[in-house]
Design a protein around this nucleic acid. Structure first.
Lengths: 244, 244
DNA sequence: GATAGATTTTTTGTATACAAAGTTGGCATG
DNA sequence: CATGCCAACTTTGTATACAAAAAATCTATC
């Protein structure tokens, strides 16, 4: 993700952006790069994101990076501390609970409408997503699995036709990825991927309520894999560790 | 530059900027000023928000204004069109439906937990908010009424203890204010304020399910006051108007 | 030898300057 | 007289420069 256009642009001083297209798409691409890196756990919670470094890597100035960082902060993927810069957010146990409770309410609540609106096309896309997820998990690529699972849930919600709630679900799924990265148990991860297929089948049969019940159990199962041990909190950390 | 922070201070009383004027709080105050103006319908949907003008009015440079505008855009209170700048968003009928459906799902779903957690303190704050709302509506100040109603719902959701869902509800309430500003019927507005009091009473008695039912009816009532006539969409507008 | 203060260095916050694109008005031509 | 093109003016997009604050390092004194 970090190689191709970066060096090319850095090496050419008079950057002609007419060819590459306007900066908006470029910014979107950079946003996606960072977002993906966070969701896939290549950037770990707590990692500092210095503006200069990012500007350097992506070959844009700090102005653009700041904008992207601000957006990521609003989606709670990074935290912006006033004079200390940006870092990948480390979700607290409370936040994790809130996020999964929210998902349970919204995603389950959406199932009846999804059942009403799902089309063979939607189902096919979702099944292929689920298949890809099972494949990469089978290959041991947990990062890709986490992201594909998030994408599955997000797209499923979008079938409901309610863009606002689908956006919420998408954001919650991104945050869930982060939570899994912190509290997740790699061993037990991915044993619930078959739920996704069962979910699609139920929805295609118009069984919205049973789909909601399954979704609820599914999210419970994911929650159950989390080991909710609150990690260290920077400063008190040292005291707790070295005082005993 | 010319008249620094005069309007900013007038519009946001109680915020202490201090002499050094911690920039963060100042930006927050400006954000609130613009946000309030939009929610209270002093800035009407479609109104253009030129960066220079705002920078001038609030006595900061365009940099800060852009940041605020971007945040407002993410909350869907303003729309940012690529080389055309910012304007107050004009919600479509579809968006309005989505927003109210979302509110119905989330706010109603939250009621049982709110009933479990509400304290006399919470109830008192909410009651005073409701009283203020009834008062200003009685005085004919619809703008303040809309904003106080939004604040009531937002705070009510926050009692649930789920910060994530409360944030969602807050955003939905802000957008609702905008929707009411476009599709609302001033005459029928505010006849449901008594629902708020009844809601608190039910919640204090621990009647979460009945509170959820009332909330559902309440939101239905608000929806019913909307006249869902899709307003003009710029270009086709002229054709439709002048072709007959 | 340790601690507190001061200095240096790094990093963010803000403003301004410059470039590109859009909009508007005027001018010329059919 | 209308229509299409061109030019100026306006407004946003981006980078850079400068200032302020926090972190780190060094020094001096107790």
């Amino acid at each position: 993700m970090n190689q191709p256009q970066t060096l090319a642009e850095r090496n050419s001083p008079g950057v002609r952006l007419g060819k590459n297209g306007d900066g908006a798409e470029r910014h979107e691409a950079i946003y996606r790069s960072i977002s993906d890196a966070i969701i896939e756990h290549r950037l770990k919670p707590g990692a500092r994101l210095r503006e200069d470094a990012l500007a350097d890597v992506f070959g844009v100035s700090r102005t653009g990076i700041r904008k992207i960082l601000q957006r990521l902060a609003m989606e709670q993927l990074v935290t912006l501390t006033p004079r200390r810069g940006a870092s990948v957010t480390r979700p607290t146990a409370d936040e994790a609970k809130d996020v999964f409770d929210a998902r349970q309410m919204i995603e389950c609540g959406l199932m009846p409408e999804v059942a009403r609106r799902i089309t063979p096309d939607n189902a096919a896309v979702l099944r292929s997503l689920s298949a890809r997820e099972q494949q990469v998990v089978g290959d041991g690529d947990h990062s890709a699995g986490i992201r594909l699972s998030a994408e599955f849930h997000s797209r499923l919600a979008r079938v409901s036709g309610n863009a606002t709630l689908a956006d919420f679900v998408e954001r919650l799924c991104f945050r869930s990825s982060l939570i899994l990265a912190v509290y997740g148990n790699p061993i037990r991860l991915g044993c619930e991927t078959h739920d996704h297929d069962a979910l699609i089948t139920l929805l295609e049969c118009g069984e919205g309520d049973r789909a909601a019940a399954l979704m609820s159990r599914h999210l419970d199962a994911v929650k159950a894999t989390l080991s909710m041990v609150e990690e260290e909190d920077e400063t008190p950390d040292l005291h707790t560790i070295f005082s005993c």
